[in-house]
Design a protein around this nucleic acid. Structure first.
Lengths: 251, 251
DNA sequence: CGACTTTTTGAGTCTAGTCAAAACATGTGG
DNA sequence: CCACATGTTTTGACTAGACTCAAAAAGTCG
């Protein structure tokens, strides 16, 4: 069998990525702020700081004081929790336009997860005080933040449901579909996920082990449902994975 | 071996439970409102309706239109999610003073879980419109709601971590401790949980099966760590369960 | 090319699920 | 108060899914 050719197109980092224009676009599209008029966005933008991150860089650790709110401008950020035993649990992968971190405003005083960049990219952040300024000038932003947190809660509860009732195979299929939907690019009827997702990461997302995930992925490949490389995964037949989740087995 | 004598004291339902006084107390203590002055609480109280619930009654179903916010006044409410395959996942058990249900204000339009009473009791509720009135008169309530939802998110993520990394034994121990901490009454160094928790319920809280939970509970009983009856569980040695979670095994 | 990391595969073991039956409670009506 | 029907819990035997440990294979990078 020929080595799968990588469908990844390198879109190289524009050095001007966190340019004013780009920042305005990101901030203006954020659910928190997108209802606000342009001048408000401009003012909010002036309160944000930007920072480039490289692959594998830790933005903050679980347990660190929670006094910054972050936005992903470019790249992908993963949120993980660690157990005392050293196992890691991957809670979510964020793309441009999503928030992370937390604030005393959310009732949290320390971060409850660790944030690590999966790719090189750029993030924006505001301090607690600066965010308070935004909230006091535009109080309905609180409402938007509430909506965003509610959505995360719902997703987390769905995760609980899946971990409680799915087999590893179903969980892997589910994670692939979720990532595909969220981060994937449509290539015909296929779905390309450009992400340096290791078996380790997939295991941490499914409450499993690298070996088991590897076996499951091999099976999926044999069945022609997915195709994977080191920095990408292509879902050849999303519907087949969906079927598998419903039926609970490969046939 | 003699049948374990039930330590349960029947505290019978006062028919005047949802009396004005009691309602004011519940509402005044709620994190959402407890920062507000007495007259505000009085006004808010006037917007709430009350309703008695009996054992096993469903307050609302997953998928129902989400236009009410509920408070537990008296009794215990469980929140469950169901899978297509008919398995149930028990997300949380609520006691007096906790909220449930959701609102368009939270960005949800249908309930994402089913609410069922575990005991006879009484709940309070407001409609979406009424809650909006509260929010517009006391905008900082939004902030409190945000804090409450953030806390639930954190707890849910912890649940994810446990399901991902703990054995069934550890998860059962963890659930018992959590319930004990939240709903238990201290009896000397023991902790009594007065709750009609079936093996079914425990299985649904731990992502396991009735049989496995039964075996685990039997083991815990033999080791003298817990003692159970049909409508109660006593944790004889909380520290033993904590040890077990850390070490990962009974010795 | 060679050192290193990640992934895959294999073999063996164990945890937890399944199916089935017995034991135990609970509630009802005679 | 007992006998019976019903539902829940416990126990047993078996199976299977997933983990562990170990080694080989493949990919990455200087």
């Amino acid at each position: 069998m020929p080595r799968p050719k990588s469908p990844v197109r390198s879109e190289w980092l524009d050095p001007a990525v966190c340019s004013l224009d780009y920042r305005l676009k990101i901030i203006g599209r954020l659910p928190f702020f997108k209802h606000l008029p342009g001048d408000a966005i401009g003012w909010i933008n002036s309160l944000f700081h930007d920072q480039d991150v490289e692959v594998g860089q830790t933005v903050y650790f679980e347990g660190d004081e929670a006094d910054h709110l972050y936005l992903v401008a470019l790249g992908k950020i993963k949120l993980v929790r660690n157990t005392e035993a050293g196992k890691e649990v991957l809670l979510d992968v964020l793309r441009g336009g999503e928030y992370f971190g937390s604030l005393p405003a959310f009732g949290r005083h320390v971060h409850t997860e660790t944030a690590i960049s999966l790719t090189a990219g750029c993030i924006l952040w505001v301090s607690s005080e600066e965010f308070e300024k935004i909230l006091s000038r535009y109080p309905d932003v609180t409402r938007k933040v509430l909506e965003a947190v509610s959505l995360r809660l719902e997703q987390s509860q769905d995760m609980v449901r899946q971990l409680s009732t799915y087999t590893v195979e179903q969980r892997v299929a589910s994670v692939l579909l979720r990532l595909g939907e969220k981060l994937g690019e449509t290539r015909g009827k296929e779905l390309l996920i450009q992400l340096p997702l290791s078996r380790q990461d997939l295991a941490a997302m499914t409450g499993s082990t690298t070996e088991t995930v590897s076996r499951v992925m091999s099976r999926f490949s044999e069945e022609g449902m997915v195709r994977t490389g080191r920095k990408w995964v292509t879902i050849m037949e999303p519907s087949a994975l969906e079927e598998l989740i419903k039926r609970g087995e490969v046939n």
